[in-house]
């Protein structure tokens, strides 16, 4: 059945970031995490649409520097939950202000449109920068970097386990779906579908617990005593200093522009 699932399939957490050296990959993961957080805090505090557009363009430049695949990354950027899209569409009708046009007697306002655009620009600029700077870090290295940034050890272990097993379990899920399909299961709007999917998830949980018992056994056999060594060959270098200075300069410029406008 291996050919159905596909062996060359990229892993679930694979963003398509290149393994080889890119301008962004030269920078220490910790610097990138801190930079992404600082960028988010600064951008959330901005209000001018032109400056926010500049922030989004900056995010685009970072994405190109990280050499993430353009199309899939941009699609991930613009994808939002449907209720958020709905909320943004409603904003022109709920914010009071100057009338733009009316739909069925409900006036849409420029101020509302402006606010919706502002939220859209902020959300996209921040998530794009996050994916470019942090999403391009190899997941296990991300765990080490977060540990060195004083994230509690237990949370880091949880992250490492998830990074490892999300993919294993997705393969298992796909295998079970193939098995269901082979027995004639076709999802539809009926109780049978919901019951079958519920059994599927229940079965996956049962298997997960049994798998975790085997994992714990294997870990104990190798001397697990409550801690997992977190090896980190992380070291700040000269390029981190230049990156921090440049990035800090951009953030300062964004804030200064907001102050001047």
């Amino acid at each position: 059945m291996g050919h159905v699932v596909g062996s060359g399939r990229p892993t679930l957490l694979d963003t398509g970031a290149p393994e080889d050296r890119t301008l962004i990959n030269e920078i220490d993961p910790r610097t990138r995490i801190l930079a992404a957080i600082a960028f988010a805090v600064v951008v959330v505090s901005l209000h001018d649409l032109r400056i926010l557009t500049g922030a989004l363009l900056f995010g685009l430049a970072l994405m190109l520097m990280a050499r993430l695949p353009t199309r899939s990354t941009l699609r991930r950027m613009v994808t939002m939950d449907s209720f958020i899209v709905f909320m943004l569409l409603l904003l022109p009708f709920t914010v009071p202000g100057d009338e733009m046009f009316t739909v069925f007697g409900f006036p849409a306002t420029w101020q509302g449109l402006r606010q919706a655009v502002e939220i859209g620009l902020k959300a996209n600029a921040i998530i794009l920068t996050l994916m470019a700077l942090v999403g391009s870090v190899e997941p296990v290295r991300l765990g080490h970097a977060l540990y060195r940034l004083k994230m509690p050890e237990a949370l880091v272990y949880l992250l490492m386990f998830m990074v490892r097993y999300v993919d294993v379990l997705q393969q298992e899920y796909l295998r079970l779906r193939v098995a269901m399909k082979a027995r004639g299961f076709r999802p539809g709007n009926n109780r049978h579908t919901y019951q079958s999917l519920g059994y599927l998830i229940g079965m996956m949980l049962v298997r997960a617990v049994e798998r975790s018992e085997r994992i714990l056994g294997a870990m104990k056999c190798r001397g697990f005593s409550g801690g997992i060594p977190l090896l980190g060959d992380l070291a700040y270098t000269g390029s981190d200093v230049y990156f921090a200075l440049g990035f800090g300069g951009v953030l300062a410029a964004l804030l200064a522009l907001q102050f001047l406008v």
């Binding site: 237990a154 272990y157 949880l158 490492m160 386990f161 998830m162 490892r164 097993y165 999300v166 294993v168 379990l169 997705q170 899920y173 998830i201 996956m204 949980l205 997960a208 617990v209 798998r211 975790s212 018992e213 994992i215 714990l216 870990m219």
Partner: peptide, 14 residues
């Protein structure tokens, strides 16, 4: 920890 990690991964997939 292993149980929590693997179960969390299951919910992620679900």
């Amino acid at each position: 920890m292993p149980a929590a990690g693997v179960l969390s991964a299951t919910f992620f997939v679900a």
